[in-house]
Amino acid sequence: MNIFRLIGDMSHLLAIVLLLLKMWKTRSCAGISGKSQILFALVFATRYLDLFTAFISAYNSTMKLFFISTSLVTVYLMYFKFRATYDANHDTFRLEFLVVPVGGLAFLVNHNFSPLEILWTFSIYLESVAILPQLFMMSKTGEAETITSHYLFALGSYRALYILNWVFRYYFEGFFDLIAVVAGCVQTILYCDFFYLYITKVLKGKKLSLPA
């Protein structure tokens, strides 16, 4: 554990809490892509199966349980409790276009051809693109609520901080995981356009609206 990873994890935690608070306080999930949230639930469910096979630390297990359970709660809130506020008309990204290629790639490019390892790899690849339905939805509506942009900024920062963590671990621990690093870089790059808008608009007190 180093400082970059700790801040990265906290940023990830903050993102999830922000999203749940936004939905709970406004009793609405308007502007949030249910498809991205389904993908995140799938990411956690496939990655953290090692909860049952390996114990790393209390921190590790607690965080894994938190991520799995909150992602399921988020999907429940969107598709059941606050379904009436879900903006399905704008959430039209086709999930099979992500899940199928990512599944194929996980079979072909992995560290070890075993069920748990393939699921872990699938989860890493899927996470790198899971935000696309959300970004697609925002590009269709042309805007995002400020709280939603805070959520996305925290969520994007988490993987960017993990990159710093991997640089640190490479130099000081000799640790290097090519799959995680490449996928993490792809994931972070996808947020760059959003980061630019966030810094130039939201941090200056303006609402996030996309250039027409």
Partner: peptide
């Protein structure tokens, strides 16, 4: 990849 190595990450 050692099992413990990357599975300590979230």
């Amino acid at each position: 990849r050692g099992d413990k190595d990357s599975k300590d990450e979230l």
